[in-house]
Design a protein around this nucleic acid. Structure first.
Lengths: 128, 128
DNA sequence: TATTGTTATACTCTATAACTATA
DNA sequence: TATAGTTATAGAGTATAACAATA
């Protein structure tokens, strides 16, 4: 329950309220893992290709991603962040970090260490 | 990121795939905090009254909640879990616990303790 | 013939506005 | 007149089915 509640709180801290969670998730993937084909994005987010196509269209209209032709296979497209997309991700990370920093600063040092020790374990659990 | 990912993984462990996250959240509230008026449910979940009304209608049709007239104020309704709703919450909790138990069992004792120490801190952080 | 991306269409969830009944 | 709940209608987001281009 604590994890579900905190996730909800974190999602509220974003840099552009006009974008949905799913749209942000795509920007985050592109930021961390680099350019993707449409199908690869759909698979990572576990949505259908048409659904991801719509999400990418929205992000493209907003100027946060662009499509490039794939050099080797003309059927495929490369979807990548624009400069505006890179900035938006950085700003959102900055806001979340700022919020978390403020909360963590209010905790005693021992509690901060306890949280820090648990984070890699949560990563392991989520990966299962 | 770890929290967001784990929350997503946990939401996947449910006892009835035909119900949405929002519908489950209402069952969880009724289970933990008892019967609620429609407006109180809407406020807790931060959705509008019409939206919550629809959610409650779905849960009522599915047989998981029922409406009772409020004794003191004829405008209000009491929304509460049916026996089937109580069972569904218990089964979902059981499944999530079983999944978490299996994952935690694979960790060394020191890691389990580290996770246990962090949980109340995540509660505190999420409450901010 | 299979694969990648796209378009067409429908369904779910949420929202705002308007309505009913009680206080 | 204000409040609690409901109904009517519209806007996102996702899904399946069908289509176009390429391998």
């Amino acid at each position: 329950m604590a994890v579900l509640r905190l996730a909800r709180r974190l999602r509220a801290e974003r840099a552009d309220d006009s974008l949905s969670d799913g749209q942000f998730a795509v920007l985050a993937i592109l930021s961390v893992h680099g350019p993707h084909a449409l199908g690869a994005l759909a698979e990572r987010e576990r949505v259908t290709a048409p659904s991801m196509n719509r999400t990418v269209n929205c992000l493209e209209s907003a100027g946060y991603v662009r499509r490039e032709a794939d050099e080797d296979d003309a059927r495929r497209v490369r979807i990548l962040l624009t400069d505006a997309g890179i900035d938006l991700v950085a700003e959102t990370v900055r806001r979340r970090d700022a919020w978390l920093d403020a909360v963590l600063d209010s905790l005693p040092e021992a509690d901060r260490e306890a949280v820090a020790r648990a984070v890699p374990l949560l990563e392991v659990i989520a990966a299962r």
